[in-house]
Design a protein around this nucleic acid. Structure first.
Lengths: 292, 292
DNA sequence: CCCTTTATGAAAAAATCTTTCCACAGTGGC
DNA sequence: GCCACTGTGGAAAGATTTTTTCATAAAGGG
């Protein structure tokens, strides 16, 4: 027999699979704005979640409460416990885990990295880089290093959906000369180079530059030597309590760039997306979307 | 004109002299057990204070509230403010760019996602999953979907450095049956499935489960159907102002998992890292580290 | 000691909240 | 294309909470 969950949060997690679409709407809202979104009366709570009161009533029963009032009291009790609780912890993460838990240390470091990274992005350079990446007159080559080739891959998958003429240089540098053959003045090369910087990436950048290629670089806070060559280069803070470097901030900047590119060329992109969708439909690769 | 008091506590102090004996009874109780003594319904609150409901009703009006519900909400709001504490997101990002710049909107959304994701990770499940992934007696298979195969790739690159017996299932599902052949009871399968959920991933998970494989799943906030099958599944918040989903929080959770795995088996891992380093030296793949 | 004033709570009335019932829309199976 | 089924919300019924009314008790002044 399973013991009753300690928190409402826990209860939602346990029963999430049984919840219907509308019920999840409220569940999601509550998880995002916890516990505030559940503290008003059922009428107001339902309204805020955009569902009807019976939906909320049914859901709290699924969670194991006898009725909404009981659910309400449970939330209230948690909130009080949190305040009177031992540490009166500052941040919202944690919930149950002690501050020294790896998760918390990690969260702290990553958040710090994101913040610093963002503060240090010059917005004009960002806009200019996005413009370059969005320009369909310029073929776009993408390449990453030993670790970052996953990021390059991610960039490729998304940018390919957004615009034509995107080429992914495979991680084996032996094949790079072939790609160099096709690069010409005005082309764009998106590179990732995080320490330890790879000499063949530098060599590639030099050769590309010699052919008039514009290089956009995502690197770490210490800057790869490729930065000297690049038209635009962005520094991402990567330090975490670990033997290796985090790429969360790099991914975030990459996603921001992709979003900017997509925004820049929306009409065509939209049409491209729709075509892509239809193609997927045809190949029946996907189930119907789950949430939403 | 006196400004309205910031807290209920303050209001009580200001109006204490006007309060009658019975009203003070409740006022004292509330100040002693603040704010709990005021959070229930007026009936219960009155009972606990040993006075009648009209007494409470009259008193809260003296304090400047229109009625008990308003008083109740005020207390609640204070409590919430205390919990969320000095989060007070400063506009530290940005620096020069206006708030509406894509970068800022993006930063906001991603930070929100990270925070929500972290708050919703149950630490025991996290520890258990890390333990599973660290167990070198269990071969570890890794697989991702159309978009997430980049994440799977990233996971593979790192985990391979940490432990032996890591296998990356290529993104072409045609080859998966071959891998299934090698899976046996106790093996571990690390999966990524973000909407739109892919039916072949679900099928793979089912087949793996049937062979006694433990499935660890990283999915989005709406949960892939694979969650029903998985031993441990984690929800990552992925919504950003864009047509597609962000994988920043997913990557962060993945990195946290990798860090936990690495920490768990540090002595061997360290030795492995050093061997890897020497091998790289030999092949002269890398320049010397740049910064630091 | 009486009268006025104020404080208090029981009980009714009003307002609000919660639950139940039911019809309808949408989905998927046959 | 029909049928069964599930999910959903409108609306009524039921429960609870809040407010108001009012009778009574207590306190203080003459």
């Amino acid at each position: 027999m399973t013991q009753p969950p300690a928190t409402v949060r826990e209860a939602i997690r346990q029963h999430y699979s049984e919840l219907t679409q509308s019920e999840r709407k409220f569940a999601n809202l509550l998880l995002e704005d916890y516990p505030a979104a559940g503290l008003a009366s059922i009428t107001i709570v339902a309204e805020q979640a955009g569902v009807s009161t019976p939906t909320i009533a049914r859901m709290v029963q699924k969670l194991g409460f006898k009725g909404f009032p009981q659910f309400h009291r449970a939330l209230l009790k948690e909130l009080q416990a949190k305040v009177s609780g031992p540490t009166e912890r500052r941040a919202n993460w944690a919930t149950e885990a002690p501050d020294s838990h790896l998760l918390n240390r990690f969260a702290k470091a990553v958040t710090q990295n994101l913040q610093t990274t963002f503060s240090n992005v010059p917005s004009e350079a960002f806009d200019a880089a996005a413009h370059l990446l969005a320009d369909t007159d310029r073929p776009l080559f993408i390449v990453g290093g030993r670790i970052t080739h996953a990021l390059a891959d991610y960039a490729f998958t998304h940018l390919q959906a957004v615009r034509p003429g995107v080429i992914h240089l495979t991680s084996s540098s032996a094949t790079w000369p072939h790609y160099l053959l096709d690069m010409g003045p005005g082309d764009t090369l998106l590179m990732f180079d995080i320490r330890r910087y790879e000499s063949n990436l530098l060599r590639l950048a030099e050769l590309a530059r010699d052919r008039g290629v514009e290089v956009v670089l995502l690197t770490d806070q210490w800057s790869s030597p490729v930065a000297e060559i690049a038209t635009h280069s962005f520094n991402c803070w990567v330090e975490i309590p670990s033997a290796w470097d985090s790429n969360v901030s790099t991914l975030m900047l990459l996603e921001a760039l992709i979003a900017a590119v997509q925004e820049e060329a929306w009409p065509e992109t939209r049409e491209r997306y729709e075509r892509l969708d239809r193609l997927f439909e045809l190949t029946r690769l996907f189930r119907r979307p789950g949430g939403h």
